[in-house]
């Protein structure tokens, strides 16, 4: 779940962290928090592995940075002309040159190997128990439930997920509405990260997302799932996630898709499995969702003009 119920506390914490070393990894937060400085650990085993890889790479770079810049600054301090340092004339050292060609190679192999293994894992969608089709439009997401527990899902109305109206009102030029005033029930400040109808999936279930688009290229991404693929018109990509804790997970379209690219967030509501089953049953017992709301947000049949 999000952990910014007390936003100001976050700020103080964060500001403190900000003063400290810029590389401290803050406790994994489910959704972006003020002063956040690092990746989330996320909500799946994959995201945690990615986080480890990310930190490993980060520390390698820090170490190399300290090494290289350190050496340079020692030189800058010790070998100044003003301190009467006299220049040596050598300009070769085969041993060293070979050394700093080999060592980086080894370091890189050390990073690339786990990365390769992890990539293969991320590409392995076998054994997924649920399939959801995700379609990007200018500017909303459409979700169709395809199958669950090996059975095709019928009668579940398509979900059209577009920016929630309060955010939409606030984001208008000169609306005068303070983005901070938009708060989710759980207290999270979800300006531009809230939608009319989120995607709902069960926790602890390997869900496969089939991702495509209908007009231009979009990008479907929930950072805490590391489920991220370009949504390309005419092409079907896929990604998967097995989310272990229930909660509301927020992401955004990450491929420039026109004027409202910043206004088509991805919100996924992860329910405990039993609650999800109940929700699904409810959906299937027809017209629970008022038709009005649906039609209100039917996707534009033809892409709207790029400039509006």
């Amino acid at each position: 779940m999000t952990m910014s119920s007390s936003n100001c506390k976050q700020r103080i914490l964060g500001a403190g962290a900000a003063l400290g070393a810029s590389l401290v990894s803050m406790a994994a937060a489910a959704n972006p928090v003020p002063w956040q400085m690092n990746l989330d650990k996320g909500a799946t085993t994959i995201t945690r592995q990615i986080w480890d890889l990310h930190m490993a790479a980060l520390w390698v770079c820090v170490a190399l940075g300290i090494l290289v810049f350190g050496a340079m600054f020692i030189a800058i301090i010790r070998f100044r002309k003003s301190k009467g340092s006299v220049a040596a004339t050598w300009s070769h050292n085969t041993v060293m040159e070979v050394g700093w060609t080999i060592v980086p190679v080894l370091i890189l192999v050390g990073l690339a190997t786990p990365a390769t293994i992890l990539t293969r894992e991320m590409y392995n969608a076998t054994g997924s128990e649920m399939t959801v089709k995700v379609t990007g439009y200018q500017w909303l997401w459409r979700y169709d439930y395809i199958s669950y527990d090996g059975k095709p899902i019928t009668k579940v109305p398509t979900i059209y997920s577009r920016l929630a109206w309060d955010s939409n009102a606030a984001r208008q030029l000169g609306s005068g509405i303070d983005p901070n005033s938009i708060v989710a029930p759980d207290g999270y400040h979800d300006y531009l990260l809230n939608v009319t109808h989120p995607l709902v999936i069960p926790a602890g279930v390997k869900v496969r997302f089939l991702i495509t688009a209908d007009d231009v290229i979009h990008g479907w991404w929930v950072p805490d799932f590391a489920a991220k693929r370009d949504a390309i018109p005419g092409i079907m990509n896929d990604a998967w996630a097995k989310v272990d804790k229930p909660g509301i997970y927020r992401g955004q379209c990450y491929v420039l898709c026109g004027q409202d690219h910043s206004a088509m967030p991805v919100v996924v509501k992860v329910l405990p499995k039993d609650q999800f089953n109940a929700w699904l049953a409810e959906q299937q017992s027809a017209n629970t969702l008022d038709k009005a709301a649906r039609t209100a947000q039917a996707p534009p049949s033809t892409p709207p003009p790029a400039k509006g």
Binding site: S4, N31, P32, V33, P34, Q36, M37, N38, D40, R171, P179, N180, H189, D190, Y191, L192, L193, P223, G251, Q252, C253, Y254, L256, H261, S262, A263
Partner: peptide, 13 residues
């Protein structure tokens, strides 16, 4: 923190 590029407006975080 996950802020996309090429956006004119963003979450308060």
């Amino acid at each position: 923190a996950g802020m996309p590029r090429r956006i004119p407006d963003y979450n308060v975080a």
